[in-house]
Nucleic acid binder design. Structure first.
Lengths: 232, 232
DNA sequence: TCTGCTGGATTGTTCAACAATCCAGCGATC
DNA sequence: GATCGCTGGATTGTTGAACAATCCAGCAGA
């Protein structure tokens, strides 16, 4: 799941006709999960810290059972770690996790871009690139980060696969948690702004092999950088 | 999640030294989820059928809340579909789902095999091939199916990524559910037995490009076949 | 035939309780 | 002084019961 769309059948998109006319009232458990996801992404909850059921239940004014349901969901997304009879903890970066995450990203991002995509989807990639440029011009470090996430999300969206989108959304949520603002300096953002432009241009020109190679190179370098900062 | 390993840090494998000396006593909720997973894989619960909380709770002799936790887990794995205020149903094949699933498989399987793997991991692939041959010789249709799943699981395991393993395990569970024994005749199995041998041989010889191409061709053809049977 | 209501069934959520488990602290022993 | 074993408190795991919210099938009436 992961905050992503969950319209069962057709792929989420500008689905013009036949909109889901369903007043979506998220259940309490879902809202709790959403709130926790937010706090995790925002850095209020740092990796390793413990989440006590009773405390969270009281803070949010919900039942302990409901909190448990939310915990289960977030544990499934690897954002929380459940240790039986001990408690749930905010996930921490274990040895090999960085490589693990980037292995998934290489698999799904490169495969998606190599298969190309519809003009609309490509336009979405372009939009993310421009979003990044605007954020850079405005010196909006926050915006730069999310623009980059939109860029990579848009690349995966090229494949028009709900499942891949969900997987990518989860991976990005993990990265937000682990590589939080605090740990990333502006230095990082300088490089890939131009690089995203290059990748996008290659994609638009139909040079899919080249686009894939560029993207792969970026991911490899990014993994190296992250590994250099956080151990192993 | 997904019956797969969840030893946090190092990748599951023949981890000789430092074994987890932890008496793993699965919680009740986990056992309920396991039982349901089993019934889903075995075909006792057919796609589309409804699962009533109270009924399952009584059948398994557990509390309704516990059943709910198990439901949440399986819904996260896409094996069950939760419809708010209506109930949970065994997931059904929606339009585009076949393509969706195969898109994921192409991404992670091909990427994994193209990156090669350690001799031990390659040996595991070989073992799955031989397992298939033995099942074929014994006319064991059941065994043929799981041998094939082991084969593709072993290919993904080449990448040594817990996350990819988990994703693959979920996808395979979905396929067991959708393309159940009932729907697959022996005809299917005849082809890929030889093909798996070919792929494995290419892998062992270090011809990774070729192995990837063969695997990709197989997946494309398999998708076509499945699409031909179950509509779009 | 269609509309609108109504009652029963099921889900969503809460609450309170208890068993199982863990952990920190504290003596007792060597 | 270090190790061992115990004990008490805190937290999780699970249950059962309750109630509100929601849905659905069936039925009455136009």
């Amino acid at each position: 799941m992961a905050g992503a769309d969950q319209e069962s059948s057709e792929h989420a998109g500008f689905d013009g006709a036949r909109a889901r006319m369903r007043l979506r009232v998220p259940s309490v458990a879902e809202r709790v999960a959403e709130e926790l996801r937010y706090q995790l992404a925002e850095g209020f909850l740092v990796p390793g810290s413990k989440l006590t059921e009773a405390t969270i239940a009281e803070d949010l004014g919900v039942s302990r059972n409901t909190v448990r349901e939310a915990f289960a969901e977030l544990a499934g997304e690897r954002l929380l770690l459940r240790q039986p009879n001990k408690g749930v903890y905010v996930a921490t970066l274990e040895a090999g996790d960085i490589h693990d995450v980037y292995t998934v990203r290489r698999a799904i991002e490169v495969s998606s871009i190599r298969a190309g995509g519809s003009p609309e989807r490509i336009a979405a990639v372009r939009a993310a690139v421009e979003e990044g440029k605007r954020a850079a011009a405005a010196d909006d470090n926050e915006g730069l980060g999310s623009a980059n996430q939109h860029f990579h999300g848009a690349i995966v969206a090229l494949a028009e696969s709900n499942r891949l989108d969900t997987i990518m959304a989860q991976i990005l949520a993990e990265m937000r948690l682990y590589f939080h603002k605090a740990t990333m300096n502006a230095h990082f953002y300088s490089d890939w702004l131009a690089e995203n432009e290059q990748i996008c241009a290659a994609l638009e020109a139909g040079h899919l092999e080249e686009a894939g190679d560029l993207l792969l190179a970026y991911l490899n370098r990014s993994e190296q950088q992250q590994t250099a900062i956080h151990g192993d």
